[in-house]
């Protein structure tokens, strides 16, 4: 640092004297293009050629746009359009880029030069003057002196943004009971996703897995996806001997047919990977694994709650129906889910 600038404390830095003096910037290395006009002219031609290539690239891109109109159902037209416009643009950009850099490297001077830096800190004099300005402004406005004005202003500044936050209050409705309830209710038939065709118990053979929605979901006028996002269910039939059921929930299944929420209790991905023989359900997003034969207990991965079970039975016509809604919230755990 130059003499005028402030010396800062070096802190814990050790002050070791360097064994040699700073030799200064290395001498300039002469390039071929500096020495020989012939080389310089070659470089010039190369640069010009690259700029020329760039023009060709632009022309290819323009040609690509017009040569491949979209033909409905013919993906090769879209492919060619994208390919040739892309390659043409790439060529035209690379031509300019390589040309300009080659120019800089071969023909523009490459002597390294040194420029002095100055500390960010203003000089003592400037700082003193700045302080003067601030004091003057303070005096003229009475900012420090007039406490009442100052404090009420702080108050006003603290309060004025609040409406700006409150105004976003209608971004979404107040959370009511919606997270605790789904479309399922007593007697709702289990239907196939996405067709909405109801499922008979006899359709569900051992080892089968059905992706299920409540009957009537497809006919909803609104909030179809919101309802589906909560009501999606996985229906599986296992050999009843393999099923280890909670005695309290023994009548929630029907002859080895069990229905569990498909929404992961970790962060809500559809847990849809069913392994027929291990009876494991795997979430493809974060690998939570649930043991379907053992009331969907978590056996691996970051989830903490078992998947909620949908109590089911059959109606008079043999269709599978829900006995009720889920008895606990489906999907990711949230703060007041147990209230």
């Amino acid at each position: 640092m130059s003499e005028l600038e402030k010396r800062y404390s070096p802190g814990l830095a050790a002050q070791t004297k360097r064994p040699i003096e700073d030799p200064g910037i290395e001498p300039h290395r002469v390039r071929m293009t500096d020495k020989s006009e012939k080389h310089a002219r070659t470089a010039e031609r190369q640069i010009a050629a690259m700029f020329g290539v760039s023009v060709i690239g632009a022309i290819i891109a323009i040609w690509g746009f017009f040569a491949f109109p979209i033909v409905d159902g013919d993906l090769s037209a879209t492919r060619n359009n994208s390919l040739w416009m892309g390659l043409g643009m790439a060529l035209s950009m690379l031509g300019i880029g390589f040309g300009a850099v080659h120019w800089a490297k071969t023909l523009m001077p490459d002597n390294e030069v040194s420029e002095l830096r100055h500390q960010a800190r203003s000089s003592e004099e400037t700082r003193a003057q700045a302080l003067e300005v601030v004091k003057l402004a303070d005096g003229e406005s009475g900012f420090t002196r007039r406490k009442l004005i100052r404090r009420t202003m702080y108050g006003a500044l603290a309060f004025f943004p609040i409406p700006g936050i409150i105004i976003f209050g209608d971004l979404g409705p107040v959370v009511g009971d919606s997270l605790r309830h789904t479309m399922w209710k007593s007697g709702t038939r289990l239907a196939k996703d996405p067709t909405g065709i109801p499922i008979k118990a006899s359709d569900v053979t051992i080892g089968s897995v059905f992706h299920v929605i409540p009957e009537g979901l497809e006919d909803l006028e609104e909030h179809k996806l919101e309802e589906k996002a909560k009501a999606a269910v996985l229906l599986v039939r296992v050999n009843p001997e393999d099923l280890n059921e909670d005695p309290a929930k023994a009548d929630w299944s029907y002859q080895g047919i069990v229905a569990y929420s498909k929404i992961c209790t970790h962060v809500g991905c559809p847990v849809a990977l069913y392994e027929q023989h291990t009876h494991h359900l795997l979430c493809p997003c974060h690998q939570s694994t649930f043991d379907l034969a053992n009331h969907c207990e978590v056996v691996f991965g970051p989830a903490s709650r078992p998947l909620p079970q949908l109590p089911i039975t059959v109606d008079a016509e043999g269709y599978l129906v829900a006995q009720s809604d889920f008895l606990e919230p489906v999907g990711p755990s949230f703060w007041d889910m147990r209230k």
Binding site: K192, D203, T205, G207, S208, V236, H277, T278
Partner: peptide, 11 residues
């Protein structure tokens, strides 16, 4: 086959 579930003709 193996751990793949069955998709019978009613499903």
């Amino acid at each position: 086959p193996q751990n793949m579930p069955v998709f019978n003709d009613t499903n």
